[in-house]
Design a binder for these strands. Sequence first.
DNA 1: CCGTAGCAAGCAAGTGCTTGGTAGGATCAC
DNA 2: GTGATCCTACCAAGCACTTGCTTGCTACGG
Lengths: 210, 210
Amino acid sequence: MVSAKNASPRAATREAGSGRRAELLAIAGELFASRGFLATTVREIADAAGILSGSLYHHFDSKESMVDEILRDFLDHQRAINDEVLRAHPDARTAIAELIRQSFRAMHRYPHAVAIFQNESKYLAQFDRFEYLSRAAAEFERTWTRVLRDGQRAGAFRGDLNVKLAYRFIRDTVWTSVHWYNPRGRLTANVVAEQYVAIFCDGISEPDRA
Amino acid sequence: MVSAKNASPRAATREAGSGRRAELLAIAGELFASRGFLATTVREIADAAGILSGSLYHHFDSKESMVDEILRDFLDHQRAINDEVLRAHPDARTAIAELIRQSFRAMHRYPHAVAIFQNESKYLAQFDRFEYLSRAAAEFERTWTRVLRDGQRAGAFRGDLNVKLAYRFIRDTVWTSVHWYNPRGRLTANVVAEQYVAIFCDGISEPDRA
DNA sequence: CCGTAGCAAGCAAGTGCTTGGTAGGATCAC
DNA sequence: GTGATCCTACCAAGCACTTGCTTGCTACGG
């Protein structure tokens, strides 16, 4: 149906966002996050958008494509942020604190994508096209554990720390909070982040340091 | 279809477990935990059990009844354990440590139920018959926050701690580990529990004690 | 001969997705 | 201008399939 002639300008429009497309993605993301990917039907997405279910397929190949695009946007952004943090903070302790802060800011900016990534990764990762989810998770783990190990060598973190366990400890604490964290609530991302940094750092920092 | 006459002996059999029934629940629980409740079909459960899907309905009213029974078993057990810990440990700090240890033991004993409780509570809680899930979560929160507040008053935990936030911090860290914790892996429940108790307590304990 | 456990077949509802079509705005040759 | 031509966004209808669950039946051990 789409002629080869149109392929190029069409793709450009999609990259740019095209307005309606972004709207539909936002609607779908909210439903995926709150009800789950499987539990959300294309008819529900269409209803929420005020159109018929078939009309969604003018904008997207499939329901999977929608969640795919939502997740890629978030992961690309977070990857870039992480790299930036590492470049700007050579000190392990401030780097960890900043990674935590940036994680909460991600929840602020991509609340639905983060929730979907948490809830549906396990299910989606079984399909080839979502293999990148596992790769992204592994990359995050490498980033965090490298910082933890560096800090351990530099004497900033306790030597008896199991780095892998500590990473999971932080990850689970920080990222799971997307399930209760309300961006428009009384607790701002910064407040929660600082409390968590405080609890966490004073727990793994060398006690005999000023 | 079930006559009133059979209700009593049948119920007794159910309580006792009846062998096959427990087997089927174990199979269903494993699938619910690994694939998700919605993503698991009754045909898959039946296949795994070596019977036809319709035959499941000789043992259970519905797919919902299966997950209901799995969750109730776990929650009843955990509630009892929590009460026991509170009775045995009047000291807040040892009580918290013991609550954490018992949580990891629960993951050891009810790995599937814990995972299902984590993953599906939000979805299931929308149905009246699963209202007890929200109530159980609220009760757990009361238990933990009471201990935290008591410890704070007694000077065992830092005074500047946001108790509600600290509870979520612990809960998310401890219970989420069911997603990666392998009961038959190298890390035993006790080892992980001790590491977590160490990281956590030294983080929230008054620094100028000992 | 009754109760437990299961089979064989299928139904109603709902699923993601496809198809052929149309309204209406922008673009362009004339 | 103005008509022809596209293109975007959507509708109306429905297809192929899967879902949880039901029904009537049978094997068989105590």
